[in-house]
């Protein structure tokens, strides 16, 4: 069976790292207009904005580049009452999408996690050949890797070597 999985980088998107204490999440959610996810690895989407819970007090928010104000402005407005840290990291990371029937196995060349246990619509911070990445399972056969910009050539190189390995069918 021919190898049919595609590796591609995605266009730039707005990214924000949000840190806040548990007692302030209600105010954050209210300001954003949707409920921030409450368990680690949970991803919530509202319109074009997504929020992924990475740690007990940490979320990664994304949106299209021209809609960044939708995140920045409402949170700035509640800052006085609900202290938090919102840092824009849009240019820090590049997203790589891996999609196709062999996507999971292709990622298993360098990802030590049991990817079968990563359910659709969930995301985690993990490592890919010792590069820290945020790995999201967008669909059963579609993953997204958010990689710090300077590591992208390394990760893309590994994925290209792995693709060649799969293509030769051994």
């Amino acid at each position: 069976m021919a190898f049919n999985t595609i590796v591609e980088t995605l266009p730039a998107m707005g990214r924000f790292s949000l840190r806040c204490k548990r007692e302030n999440t209600v105010a954050m959610s209210k300001a954003l207009g949707f409920e921030l996810p409450s368990t680690i690895s949970e991803l919530v989407r509202s319109g074009n904005v997504t929020a992924l819970k990475l740690g007990p007090d940490e979320w990664m928010l994304t949106c299209p580049m021209d809609e960044r104000a939708k995140i920045k402005e409402p949170l700035a407005a509640v800052y006085a009452d609900a202290v938090h840290s919102l840092t824009e990291v849009s240019s820090r990371e590049v997203s790589i999408r891996v999609s196709g029937p062999e996507a999971e196995e292709l990622l298993s060349t360098s990802c030590p996690r049991n990817l079968r246990e990563l359910t659709v619509g969930c995301g985690v911070r993990t490592v890919f050949d010792s590069v820290q990445v945020i790995l999201t399972r967008e669909e059963q056969n579609q993953f997204r890797l958010d990689v710090w910009r300077s590591f992208v050539p390394h990760v893309m190189g590994l994925l290209s070597v792995a693709t060649k390995e799969f293509e030769c069918g051994l």
């Binding site: 060349t109 360098s110 990802c111 996690r113 070597v161």
Partner: peptide
């Protein structure tokens, strides 16, 4: 030669 690696559960 090149050598490959894989994780498996």
């Amino acid at each position: 030669d090149a050598y490959a690696s894989r994780y498996l559960y």
